[in-house]
Every structure is written in structure tokens, then in C-alpha cells.
Amino acid sequence: MNLRTIDPISRSRNHTPVSPRDSAAPFPPTRLSILERIRSGVPEVRREAYGALAQGYWKPIYKYLRIKWKADVAEAEDLTQAFLATAYEKAFFERFEPEKARFRTFLRTCLDRFVMNERKAAGRLKRGGGLKFVALEFEDAEGELRQIQVEDPIDVETFFRQEMIRDLFARTLRQVRDDFDDRGKSAQFQLFERYDLEPSTELTYADLAEEFGLTVTQVTNHLAAVRRAFRDGALRNLQEISGTETEYRADAREIFGIEVR
């Protein structure tokens, strides 16, 4: 899969850059959890936290509305925007209780209630007065949706989680690619694309070395560097959208099989 051909739009810089120092960092720095930031009482911090959540969840929310609620494209777009704005205005996520459920389960419950109420009111009200956390590329999400095979009956929890991971990885790949480009190391990312994003059982490090005019050792080192950057970036992004540190550690274990502190 060539990210450039599939993703001509994604040169935007609305993400945390992955610097060489960051990518070599042993693990993401400890920081306030999303719940602590939402409840911080500092408007800027709270808004930034909601922005991170919107960034991390808007696509799974949109796809969920299309699949589970069978919303048409226009309704799903409106509901996605309205939900995120209303959640911010009415402080939905401040009510999250980590001991009762995971954050993404809580978010989905809020979303279900929101959609029920909206449909009962028989109208879709755009809320938020132009409040916008992130650019929502709905066409992009719709394009992805066409490629997803949805099981029938749908397991909503699994579906939502899988889409959350898909988006998390896609965002991380963009960040890593941009970062390697910026550092003049595009070839390293291209190696990673060839070997890890287009897995072929026949392709060996020796083949890659020949194709890219490198030694096998260089191929090994370059792949390791990009994988490390991807892992650290994905963990950082995961931490950004996890309800609590406990939830972050559990997700890191489930998704990557990694113990983080």
C-alpha cells in the first residue's frame, strides 16, 4: 500500500510530530489522563482534551452511525458534528466513571442516547455555533466504509474498537511518514511501506537491499527505526484518547501486547 497515492491530502500538520528524540524515547511521557484534563477546570486544557477526543474518535463515530444506526451520509455527518459539539457544550464526558466502563464504551453509550433523542425530536439540530475541533473529512470516512466488510449481526463493541484502532494507526502512519520526510529519510519509510504495509511472504531483507541499493544491515536498521517510531507514535496517540492511565495500559497490552508504565 502506497500511502502517497492513497492519501494525497494528508500533509496537514495538525498532529504531534514524531521527532528523532521522541521516537527513541523509551515510552510516552507520563501526562494527565484525558479524564483529568477534561475535569481540570482550565478551559484551554479542557478544550484541548475534547479536541484530542474528536480527533481520535470522529471516524469511528461516523462509521458507527452509518452502520449501527443506518444513518444516511448527510445525517451521519450532521450527527457526528452535533454529537461532538454537544458533548463539549453539555460536558458529556465529565460524567465518565472509569470504574464502570471503558471510555470508548461510555462514549458509545452517550452517542446512542444522543441519536435516540435526536431522532425522537425528529430533527437534526446543528449545535455548537461553528465550534470545530478538527477538520472532519467525511468523504474520506465514507470511502473507507465502502471497503469494510461488516458482519451481520454486527458486534458493535468490536466494530467500534476496530475502527478506533484503524484510525489510530492511519493517523500515526501519517505522522511518522511526515516526520521521516522532514528529516530527509523518506527512503526509510518507503522500506517500511514495502515490507510491512504490503506484506509479501516472498520478499526478504536481501531483496529490499537490492531494490533500494542498501546493505542488509542497513535495511534491518532502517526498518527497526520506522517500526520504533510507529510504535512510540501509536502509543502516544493511544494515550491521548484513553480515558485513564489504567485504560491506556490495558489497551496497549491488548492492541500491541506491550506492557507500558
Partner: peptide
């Protein structure tokens, strides 16, 4: 961006 199919997700989780 980029639709990552399930096999690629699995591969990324592994790597």
C-alpha cells in the same frame, strides 16, 4: 487518508 485493511492492521500490531 488511507484505508488500512484488516491484514495490514494485524501486521502493524505485530511489527
Amino acid at each position: 487518508m488511507t484505508y488500512l485493511p484488516d491484514p495490514t492492521l494485524r501486521r502493524l500490531r505485530e511489527v
